[in-house]
Design a protein around this nucleic acid. Sequence first.
RNA 1: GGAGAGGUGGCCGAGAGGCUGAAGGCAACGGUUUGCUAAACCGUCGUACGGGUAUAAACUCGUACCCCGGGUUCGAAUCCCGGCCUCUCCGCCA
Length: 424
Amino acid sequence: MIDIKLVRENPQLFKDGAKAKRFDVDIDRLLALDSKILGAKQILQDIATEKNRIGKEIPKMQGDEKQKVLAEMAKLKEKEAALNDELKTIQPAFDALMLEVPHPPAPEVPLGMDDTQNVELYKKGEVRKFDFEPKDHIQLGLSLGMIDVERGVKLAGARNYFLTGDGAILHRAVMNFAMDFMISRGYTPMMVPLLMRNEAMRGTGYFPGSEEQTYQMERDELNLVGTAEVPLTAYHMGELLSEKQLPIKIVAMSSCFRREAGAAGKDTYGLYRIHQFDKVEQVIIGENDEEKSRQYHQEILSNSEAVLQAMELPYRVVNVCTGDLGRGQVQKFDIETWMPSRKSYGETHSASRFYEFQARRLNLRYKTEQKKNLFCHTLNNTVIASPRVLIPIMELYQNADGSITIPKVLRPYMGNRERIEPKV
RNA sequence: GGAGAGGUGGCCGAGAGGCUGAAGGCAACGGUUUGCUAAACCGUCGUACGGGUAUAAACUCGUACCCCGGGUUCGAAUCCCGGCCUCUCCGCCA
């Protein structure tokens, strides 16, 4: 959520921001509602002052005098009730609109319509050239007994799968390596609940907007999270932290669930776009400070780059353009890892910073040394998401004989084996 | 699933129609003391919105807020109704 005061001061900033992000929101209507509310509240306050003044004198009065004053009081209450009725319709409309106003993007975000206009910042690592006809991850997964899509679909429908044998082992190796890596960088590991209340979904900015993308447990009014960002960012919801606690750096491994509604027919082949996967996610809850926000953003980005570098995977970092930014995101860097079967870089990581957008919705604040209460800043990034990352690992590390060389850093997690080979 | 209890400031906890923005304690902050730390003692110590003096910090006035929303009343943290949430006991179970 944005600060209505900033909208009052500079509505154009928010109009332009919404337009650049390709969100449709009526800022003029928001301001009109806002000024109506302010006006009504001003009058209500005057009425309350008058009521309080009269109320204090009533116990001292008697007879006619008292009757007169009571009548006056009744009139005030009528006026008050009328204004309150008016507020009762305006306020919810205002609140709903506030939830929809996007945070304006940072000035350094490139203008663009959609992900095709994201700007590549740099590439790391060599893209492998094959001297044989490479297989894709599904072919490899089948021949090495690592992936079973057919039975996944049989039991759970489209976009579901089993990881079997070395597939499951490789998946676990990747997750555990990523988790251990983040712990070594000082992040506090957590295991988190994955069914979240609407409050947490709203607080992190997913609701309203992403209900269609979410598996909702209607009976229990709980939502299966699409990312551990939700429980991690909302962890301190409603709390007043002390500045000394900041920044809070946390990391969680969790399953993630996405309906992928509206993506019908898109990326239907393989393990790229699926309903359920596992992810290690990093979150920073920091001070209300633009410079620190940028600094933390670089930190979470470089954490993830280090994980990819350790696995020696070629990737590029992309400056996500305005049209591809989420409602609350101020700036986002995606990391895309080379995937031979797609003949392109595919998104594997997404590092976002929000300023106080999420913290406002979550009522997540801290007290500064000067005793001011400020909203925190929040940031998050993927550390690793699997099985999507298995695509580049399996495809890039495959050998002409059909085996897969295990990346060095993962070997300790796989019994120090060097290769995944076909079972005889 | 059955039966109860409860939601009050950063935290704990009292208050049971006006004297309560709220006792007391802890934590925090400032000070005295001290070789340093600790202890002891003194003081300060909620938030939001609006108005006033001031560049601002600060100060000051008003209003609201004791989970949320209604109601009773001249007046509600306190009484009544609805909702949300939490806890305890019993049962079942990983």
